[in-house]
Design a binder for these strands. Structure first.
Length: 180
DNA sequence: AGCGCTACAGTGTTACGTTAAAGGTCTC
DNA sequence: GAGACCTTTAACGTAACACTGTAGCGCT
């Protein structure tokens, strides 16, 4: 059972944007553009909602959503806000898609990370407790990276879908069980 | 002519910043 | 005790580097 904590998606509007002007025109509670610090325009549709980063090229990223539904809703609302502005024609297809699903899960038991790194294979794991307390596991079969901690809690990141994250964790769980 | 050095142009790589979670370590 | 930092991942464009290749110059 994995719990989604963050979903990152991206799309493109297919047109060049004046992000400084866009930040001033958008009817949203928060925008920030500080080219000295970063060249992207930061937009929030709600005070503590997901963050949208808009680039001059028309490409944009939405990060900080806690579910796929929230991500899609944020995308819809953002596009509606843009289409309400004069001079911006939103294309029917923005190519918006999920790029990264970050989630947490639990094995339900303590694990010896030193022993596990050997059992899983040194070529697919990294464990340096003096640097970071978690074991980094990169399963060959899945596009995801799992951070596993001694208490059995895990973070799955880099997965393109929730299914991949779930499958990757199930795979880890079965491998851990087979090593017991 | 051939070699070595410097200067510059062009290309390639990396860091930045954002988001979330986890647990250990460190500073205040 | 609270908070910051460490690690991982994806997207993105820009800036700052590192590196390579070429041109020009001076010396032998």
């Amino acid at each position: 059972m994995v719990t989604i904590t963050n979903v990152v998606g991206s799309g493109t509007l297919g047109l060049e944007l004046d992000v400084e002007q866009l930040g001033a025109d958008l009817d949203v509670p928060y925008t920030e553009h500080d080219p000295e610090n970063y060249h992207g325009l930061y937009v929030r549709l709600e005070e503590d909602g997901p963050l949208i980063i808009v680039y001059r090229s028309g490409k944009y990223i939405i990060t900080g959503s806690s579910s796929l539904d929230e991500l899609e809703e944020s995308n819809d609302v953002f596009l509606n806000k843009l289409s309400a502005l004069n001079g911006i024609d939103i294309p029917e297809e923005t190519g918006f898609s999920v790029q990264n699903v970050v989630s947490t899960a639990e094995l339900g038991m303590d694990v010896n990370l030193n022993a596990l790194s050997i059992g899983l294979g040194l070529e697919s794991t990294e464990y340096e407790p003096e640097q970071f307390p978690g074991l980094v596991y990169r399963p060959e079969e899945y596009t995801a990276v799992i951070l596993l901690f001694a208490n059995g809690k895990a973070v799955i990141t880099g997965a393109p879908t929730v299914d991949v994250a779930t499958d990757a964790f199930d795979h880890l769980q079965s491998r851990v069980n087979s090593l017991l």
